[in-house]
């Protein structure tokens, strides 16, 4: 069963004051996210990720389309008790301490007295803020606010969580911790839907991803399936003082250091390159196929729409 079904959600903003223009922040989007999945919602800045999440949360109304969360219409108030949301670059009441804030959110989520106090302490512990629990949030760093944001999103034990850029503003350790936390949530049986513009964050973590660019869905599926279609690259290293023009002509990017040349070229040119090296009697050092990453897939997808950019309206 799907935990989240996005059924043609769409958002058009009217921009400009005198000369009004329509801006498609999101073209009709169709997606289904299974229960217990970690789903990555990927795309560069301005792709429409936040817009999608805000519509799902009922913060902005869609121009068209609808969605179902846990088999209920997304506008059904009953949905809200079962979901958690971490906004992008979250900001909270800075006159409250972390404990007071979480307590307040617990009240609004309908968690009762004793249970609430226990939950708040547990969450502060879980996101590593127990020492800062009675500090006013105005004194918190960006990374600490991000942790508070994650704590409030899972405080009430929701079945589905929505995280908008959960790793932004965190240092490498923090990123790791958030990744671990998302994996724990999955083990607890929760569905995790998160957006990011950093593909590496998603690659190791997600069961499936969707790739969005300029409001359009570019692909969706398991990371391995998406990257399978990517034209791979190989790295060839040989001994020489310079890279010959013939090698460059077959599309190799060459870097010369001392008396070795390192070249990265498309997989299908591998045999041609080796022929050239043999013909020029150069000594081969290594040949390594480069791992196909989501990044490659992404670049390929985004490149495909690149020509459109010069003619289109600048975002």
């Amino acid at each position: 069963m799907s935990a989240i079904e996005i059924l043609g959600l769409e958002k058009t903003y009217t921009v400009g004051f005198l000369r009004k223009q329509e801006k498609h922040a999101l073209h009709p989007l169709h997606l289904a996210i299974g229960e217990g999945e970690i789903f990555g919602f990927l795309g560069p800045n301005g792709a429409g990720k936040t817009t999608t999440l805000k519509m799902l949360m009922g913060l902005v109304s869609p121009s068209a389309g609808s969605a179902r969360i846990l088999n209920m219409d997304f506008r059904n108030p009953g949905v809200k008790a079962q979901i958690g949301f971490l906004p992008e670059q979250p900001y909270f009441y800075d006159y409250l301490t972390a404990r007071e804030l979480l307590d307040y959110y617990g009240q609004l989520s309908g968690i009762r007295g004793r249970e609430r106090a226990r939950k708040v302490s547990e969450l502060l512990d879980r996101v590593g803020l127990q020492d800062a629990s009675s500090v006013q949030l105005r004194k918190f760093s960006k990374g600490m606010l991000q942790r508070v944001g994650i704590a409030q999103a899972i405080l009430h034990d929701p079945k589905v969580v929505f995280f908008d850029e959960p790793m932004s503003g965190l240092d490498p350790t923090g990123r790791r911790e958030v990744r671990d936390l998302m994996e724990q949530l999955k083990h607890e049986g929760k569905t995790v839907f998160f957006s990011t513009h950093i593909l590496a964050d998603a690659e190791a973590l997600c069961d499936r991803v969707a790739i969005l660019n300029r409001g359009e869905l570019k692909g969706t599926g398991a990371v391995a399936d998406l990257t399978a279609g990517v034209k791979g690259k190989v790295e060839i290293v040989w001994q020489a003082n310079s890279a010959s023009a013939s090698i460059k002509a077959i599309g190799a990017e060459c870097h010369v250091t001392g008396n070795t040349v390192r070249a990265v070229l498309p997989e299908e040119q591998q045999e041609n390159a080796l022929d050239l090296l043999r013909r020029e009697k150069l000594r081969l050092v290594s040949l390594v196929p480069l791992r196909k990453s989501l990044e490659d897939y992404f670049v390929q997808q985004v490149k495909a729409v690149e020509p459109e950019r010069s003619g289109g309206v600048k975002a």
Binding site: G58, L59, K80, A81, P87, S109
Partner: peptide
């Protein structure tokens, strides 16, 4: 944007 985390609750 403090409203986001209020209105995403019940």
């Amino acid at each position: 944007r403090t409203l986001y985390t209020i209105l995403s609750r019940p």
